[in-house]
């Protein structure tokens, strides 16, 4: 567990090196965007900006300043592009992203687990083939395409705008009960779009896990005891087939946050993905660095959670 600390240190170093790797810095890309609109800034202004942002120091110094700010003051740095502290920018988006991710995860499991169990128990039945087909289509269709189709269908046939997480009235409003209701109204479409592919793969995983367990000798033993098929199924093979799921929570968490960038851009969702993309483009290093760091932290935390859950669920691991 304690090994997470040096690991996070390595991660932060790698992240910082990575975001510094592209040639030039924020001032260069700022100047480039200005010159695209016809304005020109002279070298002295640029040097002045570099000095103000601390970009003229060497990389190591910049790294230590950044890290000490995070560790000592919880200060993730300053976003050049947005002219505001990174933490202020991040929290709202992070919160929305987490809500969306967790709802999507729940939906995925609610759909995938029962279907997976059905497919395994009724292997090679018509139902199994049907879900297999649906699953493969779900896996094969890119999410952003699905998003585009949904947007089109929404506007054309239902006359509703499915983009964004809020209606225009609530987009920048302070939090209120009405705003929550508005969020819930918008949440289900990205949930379905984002959940499709992961449901499809979870169905396949559950099916394969369960088939491995269904013919184990302990199932025969339980049957020979006189247990009914349903009770037996849920208590023994399904219970054991769930363990690999728990261990996958670790990589589902960061994936849900960073994995849907294109879809989020298409749907204009105020989540972390599009912000990361934009900050990388404009070389807004502290913003992109903070996001990358948080994603890595979530991975580590996710792994820890799934390890702890696994220990609770599986006595074999407890006694290792």
């Amino acid at each position: 567990m304690l090994s997470a600390i040096p690991f996070m240190f390595m991660v932060s170093l790698t992240v910082f090196i990575l975001i510094q790797l592209p040639p030039g810095d924020f001032v260069d890309s700022y100047a480039a965007s200005l010159s695209a609109s016809g304005e020109v800034i002279d070298a002295a202004t640029m040097a002045d900006m570099r000095h103000r942002f601390g970009l003229d120091q060497n990389i190591l110094m910049q790294y230590f300043q950044w890290m000490s700010g995070i560790i000592l003051h919880g200060d993730f740095g300053y976003s050049f592009e947005w002219n505001s502290p990174v933490s202020a920018l991040l929290w709202e988006r992070m919160g929305l992203t987490l809500i969306l991710s967790i709802c999507t995860l729940m939906l995925t499991w609610m759909i995938a687990l029962p279907i997976g169990i059905y497919s395994a128990v009724r292997r090679y039945s018509i139902g199994d083939y049907f879900f297999t087909l649906v699953g493969f289509v779900g896996l094969a269709v890119p999410q952003f395409l699905l998003a585009l189709v949904m947007m089109f269908a929404g506007v054309k046939y239902f006359g509703i705008d499915v983009t964004g997480l809020f209606s225009q009235d609530y987009a920048n409003a302070p939090w209120s009960w009405d705003r929550v209701v508005d969020l819930l109204k918008h949440l289900w479409i990205p949930m379905i779009i984002l959940g499709t592919a992961s449901s499809a793969s979870l169905i396949r995983i559950m099916r394969a896990n369960l088939i491995d367990q269904l013919y184990m000798p302990y199932v025969v033993t339980a049957r020979a005891k006189g247990l009914s098929e349903t009770k037996l199924l849920l208590k023994y093979p399904v219970r054991i087939a769930l363990n690999p799921f728990v261990s996958s929570i670790g990589w589902i968490l960061p994936n849900l946050i960073s994995g849907a960038v294109i879809t989020s851009i298409v749907l204009n969702l105020q989540t972390v993905g599009p912000q990361l993309y934009q900050s990388l483009l404009s070389q807004d290093i502290y913003l992109s660095g903070a996001i990358l760091l948080l994603i890595c932290l979530l991975t580590v935390v996710g792994m820890l959670i799934s390890d702890i859950l696994l220990v609770l669920l599986d006595p074999r691991i407890r006694f290792e």
Binding site: M216, P217, Y218, V220, T221, A222, R223, A224, K225, G226, L227, S228, K235, Y236, R239, I240, N243, L313, D314, P315, R316
Partner: peptide, 24 residues
């Protein structure tokens, strides 16, 4: 099912795999 385990019970070859690993 009322016969299995009640009237006629059975034991198996592999006592390790024939019992569930995650139940006491």
């Amino acid at each position: 099912r009322s016969i299995r385990g009640h009237e006629i019970a059975m034991i198996f070859q592999e006592p390790m795999t024939s019992l569930s690993p995650i139940h006491t």
